[in-house]
Structure formats: C-alpha cells, structure tokens
Simulated scan of single mutants.
Amino acid sequence: MRVSPSTDFPDDRLGTPGIRWLAPPETKMRRAVGAPQEVTLERGREVLYKGNPCWLVKLQGYDSPEAVDELRGHRLLVPSSERPPLEDEDEFYVQDLVGLRVLMHADGSPAGTVTDIFDGTGTHDVLQIEVPGRPTYMLPFARELVPVVDLAAGVMRIEPPEGLLDLAVSGPDPDEDGAGEGWAGESGAGEAAPRRRRRRRQRKGGVAEAAPSPEMAR
C-alpha cells in the first residue's frame, strides 16, 4: 500500500519492521472515531509517486487489494514513548503543540488554542489558532512572535503583529484539497513576521497520515 509520511523519521517509522498502531480516519474536527489497533509492519521502502516521495509498506494480514482498500484514510502511529528525544530547545513535536492554550505575552489575556500546524512556504511553519466566537487566525511559529512555549503548563505566549488579532484571518479547511499549501503568504501574517536566521520548526513523531492505495499493495 502507498503511504504519505508525516514524520521526520520515515526510515525508522516506515522502513523498520515492527509493531505499529493503525488508527481510523479523522473527522473534520480532527478527531478519530474508534481506538487504534495493533498491526505489524513487515517491510517498507521509499519511492516516488507522481514526482512526490512516498512509501510502499506491507502490513501483516493485509494481502489483497480489497483488504488494503479498507485502510484508505487510516493512519499509522507509534506510542509517544518511542519518540526520539529532541536536542534543540527550539524544536517541538507537533502533537505537543496542538491543544496548547495561547496567551498574549504582554498581559496574559487569552488569545485562543492551537488547533493545527502547517508547513510554511517560507522560513517558518505556521500555527492555526482558534478563538471561540471568532474566525481562525494563522501565526508563523517564530521566536519573535512566539517567545514562550511552556509544555508543562500547556501554554504558549505570543506577540503577534499589530492588528493581526483584529483581522483574524481565516484559512481554508485543512481537509480540503490543497490545504496547508502557502499558509505563510496567504494568511497575511507571514509577510509581517520578522525572520530568524535559524528556523524554528516542529518535529513530527508520528508515522503517516494518508490514504493507502490498493493498486500499490505489495
């Protein structure tokens, strides 16, 4: 089956045989319906599909196109305990950032909740932040704009460009085709953000979030 990796460690996650967890597709609210099931990864290799890198993997017990087709939209996961430690203080796992409460750095007033992170087209990745009763807004994940990330307290403190929260720029539905492309420029926040010489980015510790393709089953 064909799988698109969403991890910074694809060789370990998709190329090394062992136990993985198969999770059902997420809803538009980014919630999975049903508990993950244990599966065995027999083998995997990286290939190009329509010019883009992906992986062909074989899961034990899924030996026919019909069986693989039932996995369309499922995700392969690993336990959080198996994530490699991060050595850089400016690196975070995406899963640890989603759900953080967002506060204004100046006065501690609430500014929403991190609901998603997208790969930026420029220097920085982009946070999607939701505020109850207001449109979603986007913020580049740069130290100048996000000076404090306190995972233990479940809090992120931000110093957004003037007027950003008033504009509350909305982004496209992340479940629609093309979502996550060009966020930094399209949100309007990316151009206003000062750039750092060293990129502040997130590590992705999962395995894959994509639709297996039955015609690519091995």
Rank of each mutant, 00 (worst) to 15 (best):
Met1Gln: 12
Val3Gly: 05
Pro5Asn: 06
Pro5Leu: 02
Ser6His: 13
Ser6Thr: 14
Ser6Leu: 13
Thr7Ser: 09
Asp8Tyr: 01
Phe9Arg: 12
Asp11His: 07
Arg13Gln: 05
Arg13Gly: 02
Leu14Glu: 03
Gly15Ile: 02
Thr16His: 11
Gly18Ala: 03
Arg20Ser: 00
Trp21Gly: 06
Leu22Tyr: 13
Pro24Phe: 11
Pro25Leu: 04
Glu26Gln: 15
Met29Arg: 13
Val33Ala: 14
Val33Ile: 14
Pro36Lys: 02
Gln37Tyr: 04
Glu38Phe: 00
Val39His: 08
Leu41Glu: 06
Glu42Thr: 12
Arg45His: 14
Glu46Asn: 09
Val47Ile: 15
Lys50Tyr: 02
Gly51Tyr: 00
Gly51Arg: 01
Pro53Phe: 06
Trp55Leu: 08
Lys58Tyr: 00
Lys58Leu: 07
Lys58Cys: 03
Leu59Lys: 08
Gln60Met: 06
Gln60Asp: 11
Gly61Pro: 11
Gly61Ser: 11
Gly61Lys: 12
Tyr62Ile: 11
Ser64Gly: 10
Leu71His: 06
His74Gly: 07
Pro84Gln: 12
Glu89His: 08
Glu89Asp: 14
Asp90Trp: 11
Val94Asp: 10
Val94Asn: 09
Val94Ile: 12
Gln95Ser: 14
Asp96Met: 08
Val98Ala: 01
Val102Pro: 01
Ala106Lys: 10
Asp107Ser: 04
Asp107Lys: 02
Ser109Pro: 06
Pro110Ala: 04
Thr115Val: 15
Thr115Glu: 15
Thr115Pro: 02
Ile117Gln: 04
Phe118His: 07
Thr123Ala: 14
His124Asn: 13
His124Tyr: 11
Leu127Met: 15
Val131Ala: 03
Pro132Ser: 03
Gly133Arg: 10
Gly133Thr: 04
Leu139Glu: 10
Pro140Phe: 07
Phe141His: 15
Phe141Val: 02
Ala142Trp: 00
Arg143Ser: 10
Arg143Ala: 08
Glu144Pro: 00
Glu144Phe: 05
Pro147Leu: 02
Val148Ser: 04
Leu151Asp: 10
Leu151Val: 10
Leu151Tyr: 13
Ala152Val: 12
Met156Arg: 06
Arg157Asp: 09
Arg157Ala: 10
Ile158Tyr: 08
Pro160Asn: 05
Pro160His: 04
Glu162Phe: 00
Leu165Ser: 06
Asp166Asn: 07
Leu167Val: 14
Val169Glu: 08
Ser170Phe: 01
Gly171His: 12
Pro174Leu: 07
Asp177Asn: 09
Ala179Met: 01
Gly180Tyr: 00
Trp183Cys: 15
Ala184Pro: 00
Ala189Asn: 05
Ala192Met: 14
Ala193Trp: 03
Arg195Asp: 12
Arg195Asn: 12
Arg197His: 12
Arg199Asn: 03
Arg199Lys: 15
Arg199Phe: 05
Arg203Ala: 15
Lys204Trp: 11
Val207Asn: 03
Ala208Gln: 12
Glu209Lys: 13
Ala210Val: 03
Ala210Met: 04
Ala210Lys: 09
Ala211Asn: 13
Ser213Trp: 13
Ser213Asp: 14
Pro214Arg: 13
Pro214Lys: 11
Pro214Ile: 06
Met216Gln: 09
Arg218Ile: 09
